[in-house]
Amino acid sequence: MAILTVNHVYHTYFSQEVATEALHDIHFSVEPGEFVSILGASGCGKSTLLSIIAGLLEPTAGDVIIKNHDQSTSIGYMLQQDYLFPWKTIEENVTLGLKLLKYHDLHAKDIAKELLQAVGLPNIEKKFPRQLSGGMRQRAALARTLAVDPKILLLDEPFSALDYKAKLKLEDLVCAMLKSYEKTAILVTHDIGEAIAMSDRIILMSAKPGAIHKIFDVPRELAALTPFEARTHPSYGAFFQSVWKELESLEHSTSS
């Protein structure tokens, strides 16, 4: 039974001059505990789709169904940059969601402490974001997202602003955290390697209007590994090639 179903979603942006169709008949579902990547060139409507799933944007047609849960409280969202509030301490940042969702939980501080420990940032509760490096800040943002215990995590290119080493480490950390807390995740990315290394399934989107072009199942031997190990596995290269070819053909068909 799917935890999330995106049910024939269409979205169109309107301006004075034009109506731009951003999403065209997007339909897929995600199983509990599954990691799905949405891969596509910039401008293919990936972020629009994520905003619709998160309930921040009302689709023009279609709907998003989440099993047994209210859309707004069961979804966690991680952005391209950390967007930690610079005037709040790390602890205040991590407990922000708990405070806003009125979980009158006396243990908010304990939750923050435990999560920060889990993401590898012990003893920094009282520090301010500017005192941390980019990778550390993104890990604190992960802790903030997980603090409200969402069922589904939406990751909007959360690794794209990091340097390569920090990116590889954070990919492993996010994967491990999602497994240990049994979360379902949807990652939006334009990085084929990242999509292969992290996911169970890859949804390839074509642009203008954004539509599902093809869905790949990541080979089981790759999906079982950590992202870092997957990148060095013998079958990674071949699978990369097949996704790459599909992406290339997509570009040629739209540009010609």
Binding site: S72, T73, G76, Q81, Y83, F85, W87, L96, L100, L101
Partner: peptide, 24 residues
């Protein structure tokens, strides 16, 4: 994006003003 972070936590307009707009 700060507003977006708060909206994912279901914040209302008062909370958005208090937590992000005013301090920023």
């Amino acid at each position: 994006n700060y507003v977006k972070v708060l909206q994912t936590f279901n914040a209302n307009r008062t909370q958005i003003f208090k937590e992000a707009i005013l301090p920023a």
